[in-house]
Each structure stands twice: as C-alpha cells, then as structure tokens.
Design a protein around this nucleic acid. Structure first.
Lengths: 145, 145
DNA sequence: CAAATATAATTGATACATCAATATTAATTA
DNA sequence: TAATTAATATTGATGTATCAATTATATTTG
C-alpha cells in the first residue's frame, strides 16, 4: 500500500493536506485582518461560543498545549483581542473576555474562514467527507491508546 | 455536515489526527534515540534514499520551507548527523552527506517508524486507506489552485 | 562581454509545539 | 487543622513554520 509521496504512507498525505490548508487559510485571513493568525482566529471563535471557559479547556478544544495557550493569550491580550482577569471562585484560573476589537474581528473573519473551508472541500461529496472524518477518527483513537 | 468537534469541519479532524500521530511517533522515537526529532528522522531517511539532493529539493520532499530546512540542517550538522560541503559544480548549492552516526540512527529508528505507522493505521482496510489518501489529495489540489 | 534576471540558500522577525520544571492555589486525607 | 496531593497556569529550553528581505552565485539577454 504505497502512496505517491516520499515516505509511502498516508500519514504523510495527512500532514501535507493540513499544511496546504493552513497556508491558504492564513493568506486569505491576512488580506482582511493584518495582525492575526489562523490559530488566534480559532481561539477567538471558540471563546465566542464558549464563554466562561478555562485556559485548560480552551487548550483541549483547540488541541494545543497549555504552554502554547498561555503564550497565545499573552499575545492576544497585548494586541487587544482579549482581556484577562483573575477568576474569583478559583484563583488559579482566569476569565477570558473578548474585546470590542475581538468581536469586530470575528465578524470580519468568519465569512473568510467559511470560504476557506468551502474552497478546501470543494467537489467532495458528503459521503467522502463523512468517511474521511470517520477514518481520521480511527487513527486518532489508535494513537491515543 | 457538522462533525463532532468545536469547529464542525473535517479540516479540524485532519489537524487533530496528525497531531496525535506526531505525539506518539516522537515519544516512541525518543525512547530509542535521545537527541532527535521526528522531522529530523524524516530528513535523514529522505537523504538516505536520495543522495545528491539539494536543500531546495529536500524541502519540497518533506513539505517544508527553505528556511526551515536551513535551520534543521544546521542543527543536524551540529549534532553530527550530517556533513555539509559546498557543491563544486554549483557553488550556491551544498552536498549533504549522512555521517556514521546518522546511518546508525536510521537503522535504529526505521523499525520504530514502521511500528508507529502500523499503530496509527491499525484496523484500517486497504480501501479505507486508499480512499483517505485520495480524498486528502483532492483537498491538497483544492488548496493549491 | 556587461547588465539584468533567476536560482539556492541564509537571516531576521514573529508565532506555535512540546517537554520538563516550577509556582500558586484548591481539594483531599491523615 | 496540618500535610499531602491535585489542578491551573507559567516559564525556560529547544525545535519547527512562515514571510520578507538579503547574499551569493548562475544563467540569460541586450
């Protein structure tokens, strides 16, 4: 079962696919909002749909390390996308609040992200996508145990 | 076509899958060879199968930026996996040669990599894998144009 | 042949990834 | 309640990703 790539495994194709997607996604977003990355966009959107979330939970949702999230939030606070305040009930935690600038940015980028996804998945049938998701989830489970 | 993840797109599952795979791959390799990363392993293996390759070509094969490759090679030369000398016919290029240590490392890690791939793809049928590859390639093409 | 253009690789800047160690606060247990 | 353990987040170290600008060498063109 060789594949048409230097390592001969589909795992390599997975990596290539996500890299190509990230490339166009970042490029298109940059044309609308200058100082943001796709990862920061994702954080904004997740926070928007999940208020009151902790950094830990956020990290899990976006599949990032705790350390990465800490640094991303630092940057996003500095760039005034987020406000971070100490959580009153549990002083180990923080509240993450989206600023006005953050909200405006979400409105700007959401259609772009939508478009990026449509571009990437253009011409794929529902079955193909469903099956893709199913197969990838098998791989994820295999790797987790 | 929503998926069971925070963004509701399979593109997210792709990212998750490759991240999980890289995690176990790196962990297993680290148990055998202390000072190497999966990316450096891949570079070693590609170089082993493609002598006389330029940094440019190497970058394309492993889907990395030229800048990334330059820095990886620097590190790998420092760690004595590679020797880099100026190309005689074209003085803009370099010859990349694998050291003894590099060869020994390849022999150590190749079975591990094989095992990692088998673990990740365990229980998947040939059809599933073929289809996965095919669908991913459609996405890659979509993103490239 | 000289000037312009193309190619190969490097460098700087910034962001994310991962691991291990640490600090702080909360919850559990002796 | 004091001591232990667990949970949350940070920090340091190292490696990779991407873009833009630059250097050095080759090739093409006028």
């Amino acid at each position: 079962m060789r594949h048409n790539n230097p390592t001969g495994t589909v795992l390599y194709t997975i990596e290539q696919a996500i890299k190509e997607y990230r490339k166009i996604a970042q490029k298109n977003i940059l044309q609308i909002v200058k100082d943001i990355t796709i990862d920061q966009c994702l954080v904004l959107i997740i926070l928007n749909n999940n208020a009151e979330i902790s950094q830990n939970e956020l990290a899990n949702l976006v599949f990032k390390d705790n350390a990465s999230i800490t640094r991303m939030i630092e940057l996003m606070v500095k760039k005034e996308y987020l406000i971070r305040t100490i959580h009153q009930e549990d002083r180990r935690k923080f509240n993450l609040e989206i600023t006005e600038k953050g909200i405006k940015t979400i409105e700007l980028i959401e259609p772009i992200i939508q478009l990026n996804r449509e571009t990437a998945l253009n011409g794929l049938s529902l079955e193909e996508i469903t099956l893709l998701d199913k197969t990838l989830n098998k791989i994820i489970i295999n790797c987790k145990k």
